[in-house]
Design a protein around this nucleic acid. Structure first.
Lengths: 347, 347
DNA sequence: AGTAAAAATGCAAACGATTGCAAAGTTTTT
DNA sequence: AAAAACTTTGCAATCGTTTGCATTTTTACT
């Protein structure tokens, strides 16, 4: 089959462009970035010549000289043994929003994940001039790699639980309050045994669990300790857990606070297969508001976090670090979305 | 709040490392990449010194000198007016798989999408030395930008319909056969009026539509022309379309071949809300096998394409172009997954 | 017109790694 | 022990842009 010649040899260089314009390379360089040092007329001439000849600066050279890459590494901090990566639309939604936010500020997005990059993030991404800073999505079960990177002085921002104290800004929803509201909503709907489904080993999830407990306290209900189902945050794990549990205990709960929509949906599936009525017998609330939540039948109640806002915050906090300005963690809007899966009172 | 000092000033350079090891920069450089030119003992000494001092090569300098970036730009070719981007898990699944495949070959992934990058992809990504090549996900409605880039001689691979003739390799599932099988399956299940939901303006979707027609031909059924619902490929559009259609015509179909799972799920929701029995009254098949397909109730039948295999193919075809080797398009495994949403004959 | 000030441009030295070729060092051969 | 052959290392140029400073050109003012 065909081969295609790569006629990249004739690549126009700044010096070449300068010659075309009859100026020096320095002038051309300045003209291209609209430096007021250069006469307007010259600027225009160079710029239009650049356009005409498809000139574009060699970013490798530029980065070498300026020591800035205008690239941000986005690292999906996946949990080792699960394959949350390819499965969870939420993570990828954040990536999409980050991409948008970064581009709006003139940065590009280098995608990576915790499996692939070497362990020494500071070295691999920053010292090697691959990127100017990094945004880590998810705190994972251990923040050691993040801490270590931050300790070595590189700009970092994390999506996670913003209440965690750390040497870097953390942006995230109000996990405590989000899950507290969700749980309170379930309890208000008459649930008496609400199952918490998630992995409290995780910073964010732990906060959600605390919210779950707080809601109970406020309602003066003692949550039985057997109502915390500690599982991997995948739909599969939730599905298996529910099946297992029902097989063993029967249906010993009447509400579920899921730590993600994927988890909630896994549980939902298991329940539906057993003809458990939703929300009649068991009311369910998820977390994240993935696009499919409202497509479910019944539509899934959930907690929505403003990821677009979050992405903008994260980028802003990262840029502040570039400039040596003070930074801070930030909580983004979090809102309980009530849909059919938890609406017991019928209209 | 806190500021953190960026002590990147003391960055160790190759020359510095060389001095530490008591050799020249050239020797150090060769030692680091295990060149047989260098005595084993020296190599080891340099390498371990590098390790000890956290040395990592400056990629900017390296790229400038070698004219290779070891970066591949992955461009999500989104359709203008829809927000398929953040909504469709399938695209992002591909990105994840590409990331994996690229990393396995020692390449990194620069994420972009058709909204953000400038229009002249060859210039922006390749001539500027941002990346060595590009992988475009989705042919979109027009391939002009891709064609243009390929014409200017840069390495490109596309995810799309592999049967399309083009100046670059296209990797994708067998859209014709996938949808033919899906439709045939619906017809075999007794459906007499199968609705095709999608946008035939799209290369891939058009092939699927052809498959849809072929299945009818094989079954000696004439598909009424009013059974092709041309809609944006989002769940919202499908949902609205079905509601609208039923309101206008009543339930004038008994099967749906959706062009993506998101579309199928949108339709499914509309039908369920109207208490249409699935698969009894209407049998449904989607496309893509997103993780949620099997979580639905009923579980959604769908067509699965091996995206991992596809990602590997794409990367390989791209690398072949780097080396000036001949390349070719490739069809990846495509398989109908039958679940409850289309299983009329009960066991 | 002559000088001072301002505006526009050019020079040349970085940035840090890579690599062809020459040089130095070591071993083998006669 | 000298020459030949081979191994190991270093020199120096190069990749293309950027930027502090010097230089030239233009404008302004007396």
């Amino acid at each position: 089959m065909p081969t295609r010649p790569c006629n990249l040899d004739t690549k126009l260089t700044l010096a070449g462009l300068a010659k075309l314009a009859g100026v020096s390379a320095s002038t051309a360089s300045r003209a291209l970035k609209d430096s007021p040092l250069i006469k307007l007329e010259t600027r225009l001439r160079v710029q239009q010549l650049a356009q005409a000849h498809n000139y574009s600066v060699n970013t490798a050279a530029s980065r070498l000289r300026t020591r800035k890459t205008h690239v941000v590494a986005v690292i999906l901090n996946l949990i080792d043994n699960t394959e949350q990566s390819t499965t969870d639309p939420f993570l990828l939604k954040i990536v999409g929003d980050l991409n948008q936010a970064l581009n709006a500020r003139g940065y590009e997005l280098l995608l990576s994940n915790s499996f692939m990059a070497s362990d020494d993030w500071a070295n691999y991404f920053i010292h090697s001039q691959r990127a100017d800073g990094m945004i880590v999505v998810g705190q994972g079960k251990s923040t050691s790699k993040i801490d270590q990177a931050a300790a070595s002085g590189v700009p970092v921002v994390v999506w996670g639980d913003a209440k965690t104290q750390a040497a870097y800004p953390i942006v995230g929803g109000d996990n405590f309050e989000g899950c507290r509201q969700a749980t309170a909503h379930l309890l208000a709907g008459g649930c008496e045994r609400v199952l918490f489904l998630g992995d409290p080993g995780h910073a964010e999830m732990q906060e959600r669990h605390r919210g779950y407990l707080a809601a109970h306290a406020q309602a003066a209900i003692e949550p039985a300790s057997d109502l915390t189902g500690s599982i991997d945050i995948t739909s599969r794990a939730a599905y298996d857990y529910i099946n297992q549990r029902i097989k063993q205990n029967g249906l010993d709960f009447d509400g579920i606070a899921g730590v993600s929509d994927m988890v909630a949906l896994g549980a939902l599936k298991a329940l539906k297969e057993r003809y458990v009525s939703i929300p009649g017998d068991v009311a369910i609330v998820g977390y994240d508001d993935i696009p499919l939540a409202e497509l479910m039948h019944p539509a899934l109640s959930t907690v929505r976090q403003d990821t677009q806002q979050a992405a903008n915050f994260m980028v802003e906090q990262l840029l502040r670090q570039f400039d040596g300005q003070p930074w801070h963690s930030e909580v983004v809007d979090t809102r309980l979305i009530i849909r059919r899966s938890s609406s017991r009172a019928r209209a």
